[in-house]
Structure formats: structure tokens, C-alpha cells
Simulated scan of single mutants.
Amino acid sequence: MNATPPPSPRERALLAAAAREFATAGFERASLNAVIRACGMSKSSFYHRFDSKQALFDRVVDEAAAALARELAAPDPAELAGPDFWPRLEAFVAHAAAALAKPAWYADLGKLFYLPDVSAERSAAMRRLLAGVDRWVQAVLKAGRACGAVRDDLPASLQAELAFAVLQAMDRWSIRHMETMGAAARRRLAASQLDSLRRLLAPD
């Protein structure tokens, strides 16, 4: 699959303005006029690109997810297999925590994902993002089970559902409290969360 190219500076300004507006106001109360003013675009140009608020929201989610994926560079699950499975995951989590601490327009993605007035049932982009993360988690667990780093006393599908639910709960809590934590506290939280997952998933 070809990597999605980064948006142009003008497109990035539009996406940043829209992400900020959705994250601040929520989906229903978000103002397209506020987005248009913030990015300095004419209404005709804006409506030539997007015919609805939902189309804009989905584009923001798609592009933010692509930008975050480029920044995080998640490892191929197959490369994690082996005696260093958990240390490699720990290194990735530390890298991800540092990347997410950087100021960037796509940092609002987490807030968009948990808005109370929009859901995966409503947003095709959110469904795509969820499916992609779920596939990666399943592949990581498969690699861990194959090398003995992840317990195999549960059906693989049930284990994946449990792990994904725990990850979502951790993510939701972290996003709610992220602005009250400094960089060091965020790194410690990420490490503690991974340790909790390890205790849940690793063999006794």
C-alpha cells in the first residue's frame, strides 16, 4: 500500500483549523464559518472541496491518522517476534509518547475520536481508523503468541478484543488528562500502561 502524501501547506492550515474547531466545539456545534475564517479560505473554495460537515470531519480524521502514522512509524508486528518482544514494544511506546508530546495539528485526533456526538457508526473515517488499529493489535498479539511472549490460554479473538478494549480505556483516560501532565508524567504513564498490558497478556 502506498503511503499517503502529506497535505500541502494550505490543506494543512484547513485541516488544523477544522481539527481545532471540532475538538473544541464538538461535531454538532462546530462552525464551518469559523473554520473558513481561521484558515483564510473563501467560502466558494471551501464548498468546492467539501459538501458537508461530515465530509470535512472524515477528511480531518483520515489525514490526522495518516500524519500520526508517519510520525509514529509503528513497527511491523512480525519484526516484534522473538525474545525481545516486550522490550521492542516498550521502545515503540517510548517513541510514541515523545512523538505525541510534540505540538502538531494532528494532536487533536484523540479528542475527535472520543467526541460524544459522533461515532464510528456515523463516520466512515473513524471506522477505517478503528479497523486499522484493531488489525495491528491482532497482528502484534499473534506475533507475541508465536514466540511465547503472549499467553495462549485464551482464544486469540477474545484476547484481541480484551486487549483492544483495555487500550481504548487507557487512551480515553489519557486524552482527558493529557493537558494536566508534563512530558515526564506522560512518559511514565505510557510505561505504566504498557506494564499493565504486559501483566495482562504475558504468561505467568
Rank of each mutant, 00 (worst) to 15 (best):
A3R: 11
S8G: 12
L14T: 13
A17M: 08
A19Y: 13
F22S: 02
A23W: 12
S31M: 13
N33V: 13
V35L: 08
I36C: 11
R37W: 04
M41D: 09
S42P: 07
S42A: 14
F50G: 12
K53P: 07
A55G: 12
F57A: 03
R59G: 04
R59I: 05
A74L: 08
P77V: 07
P77F: 08
G82L: 02
P83T: 09
P83S: 10
L89K: 03
F92H: 05
H95Q: 06
H95C: 04
A101D: 14
Y106P: 00
Y106R: 01
L112R: 01
L115F: 06
P116S: 04
P116E: 04
S119I: 11
R122V: 04
A125I: 06
R127L: 06
L129E: 02
A131C: 07
G132A: 04
R135G: 01
W136L: 10
Q138A: 15
K142E: 15
K142V: 14
C147Q: 13
A149H: 08
V150I: 13
D152Q: 13
L158T: 14
F164T: 12
F164P: 03
V166M: 10
M170I: 09
R172V: 09
W173M: 10
S174H: 13
I175G: 01
R176P: 00
E179K: 09
A184I: 03
R187T: 14
L194F: 04
L197I: 14
R199W: 07
A202V: 09
D204T: 10
D204R: 15
D204A: 15
